[in-house]
């Protein structure tokens, strides 16, 4: 499969953009592998509770490449899909948080291993989605893989950096440790289809949260392929759930959902900041705001795009007291 993608990409480059919406050679489907064989196309589905359902609505919307060619039909997820995803996340979260940090660390590393195996496929999909050349796409995919490796290592170190034994003025043993916040909504960055998503998702799940992700609206296909990796990486079903569709239909539902504990709105449109934050107030969600300047100039390749402080945004500090005595 990996060998087919480059051919598809070349062909796409010559597809006239006037045919937008009616491209003769949809990439995702292309599979034109010479010899007249009819390729087997991939159906891009949602990812909920470890399964790949279609949207309950049966609706779809067309995904176009950077040059205007049709890439695939994606599920146009609904509010109900979001609610199903939150339910799956809630169910999966305690078990995920209950795994040892060492175990979570290995599972995140496993994601990197499996992405590496699909590296060419991700490069082709990022090229198609973002309209970047092979070299750039390769850098983005490699950075996404390395980002999983980086966060994998934090799983069993984060507590040691942010936890504390507190020297209270009394005969008590007192310590503070971080714990996963619970179910975290992630509004994936719109432009950075893979690296942006991974950069926001990894710090959410590494501490034991379960995530409900709204994929990039216009560039969701690499995200869907990522869920196929997650499904085979020992990440328990429901720990990551991904919905594709129109953001105006999905974001308000996620932002206002009463069983979502935190929301990463970093990838959301700054114009939506007030609406998102207002919706998130109802159950006192922890919130990461969209940057006021937007993400256009944001450098996802920078080491600054990864930080243990981001893990901290989705954890709670729990402090425990116990008397000392014989």
């Amino acid at each position: 499969m990996a060998t087919r993608r480059p051919a598809a990409t070349k062909r796409r480059a010559s597809t006239p953009s006037v045919l937008k919406g009616r491209a003769a050679q949809p990439l995702a489907a292309t599979g034109a592998n010479g010899g007249g064989r009819i390729g087997v196309r991939k159906t891009y589905k949602l990812y909920i509770g470890g399964a790949f359902p279609r949207t309950e609505s049966g609706r779809a919307y067309e995904i176009f490449g950077a040059r205007g060619e049709l890439l695939a039909n994606a599920c146009r997820g609904t509010r109900k899909d979001i609610r199903e995803a939150v339910r799956a996340a809630r169910k999966a979260q305690p078990g995920w948080a209950g795994k040892t940090a060492y175990n979570r660390s290995q599972i995140l590393y496993r994601i990197a291993e499996l992405m590496e195996g699909r590296r060419d496929q991700f490069v082709a999909e990022v090229m198609a989605a973002e309209g970047v050349g092979r070299a750039r796409a390769t850098r983005l995919v490699d950075a996404a893989i390395d980002r999983w490796v980086w966060y994998a290592g934090w799983a069993d170190k984060f507590s040691q950096v942010v936890g504390a034994v507190n020297p209270v003025a009394g005969s008590y043993f007192n310590f503070s440790i971080p714990e996963a916040t619970g179910v975290v909504g992630v509004v994936a960055p719109e432009a950075s289809s893979l690296l942006g998503l991974v950069s926001r998702l990894a710090p959410v799940i590494v501490s034991g949260n379960a995530g409900v992700v709204i994929a990039s609206e216009t560039r969701p296909l690499p995200a869907v392929t990522l869920t196929e990796v997650l499904a085979t990486s020992d990440v328990p079903g429901g720990v990551v759930n991904l919905i594709t569709g129109l953001r105006r239909e999905l974001v308000p539902t996620l932002a206002s959902h009463m069983d979502v504990n935190a929301l990463d709105a970093f990838g959301a449109d700054p114009d939506e900041a007030v609406a998102i934050e207002t919706a998130a107030v109802e159950n006192v969600k922890r919130l990461v705001r969209p940057p006021s300047a937007g993400l256009e100039r944001y450098d996802w390749l920078s080491p600054r795009a990864q930080s243990p402080y981001l893990i901290g945004e989705y954890t709670e500090i729990k402090t425990v007291w116990h008397p000392i005595g014989a």
Partner: peptide, 22 residues
């Protein structure tokens, strides 16, 4: 955010205090 085991309502400047959820 704060769990007291075999004690209750202890406070100290070195001890973080604050809540989960609402």
């Amino acid at each position: 955010g704060v769990v007291w085991a075999n004690t209750f309502n202890r406070f100290d400047p070195t001890s973080p205090f604050g809540g989960y959820k609402e």
